Simulated scan of single mutants.
Amino acid sequence: MADDIFIALGTTRKHTPDEAEYYRIDHDYPVLAAKIAKANGAQAVFVVTAVGANAASRLFYVRTKGEVERDIIALDFAHTHIFRPSMIMGQRVEDRPGERLIIAAWHVLNPLLLGPADRYRGITGGEIARAMLHAARGDAPKLRVYHWKDMAALQREPDRQA
Rank of each mutant, 00 (worst) to 15 (best):
D18C: 08
A105V: 15
E69G: 11
I73E: 04
P30Y: 07
G10K: 06
A153Y: 04
V68R: 05
D3N: 11
D159C: 03
T16S: 00
W106A: 15
A55V: 13
V47L: 14
I36H: 05
A105S: 03
G90S: 04
P85E: 09
V68S: 07
F60P: 01
I123T: 13
P116A: 05
R160L: 08
P85K: 04
G138D: 14
I73F: 05
V51N: 10
G90N: 01
R58H: 06
G98F: 15
A104V: 06
E69W: 05
I5Q: 01
A131L: 01
R24G: 13
T11V: 08
A39E: 12
D28Q: 06
A44K: 14
T124C: 05
R156Y: 08
Y22I: 00
V51W: 10
T124A: 06
D150C: 01
F6T: 07
V93F: 00
A153Q: 06
A33R: 12
W106Y: 10
D95T: 11
D159E: 13
T49W: 15
P116I: 01
H147I: 14
V51L: 13
D18L: 00
D139C: 07
D95H: 10
W148K: 01
K149T: 00
T11M: 00
A105E: 03
R144F: 14
V93Q: 07
N54R: 01
F77N: 09
P158E: 12
T11L: 03
A117V: 04
V68F: 04
Y23H: 11
T12S: 10
I103Q: 04
Y29V: 15
A129T: 12
L114Y: 00
E99D: 13
R156E: 11
K149I: 01
D76W: 08
A39S: 10
E19H: 08
I7S: 12
L143D: 02
F46I: 11
L101M: 14
P17V: 06
A131M: 05
L154H: 06
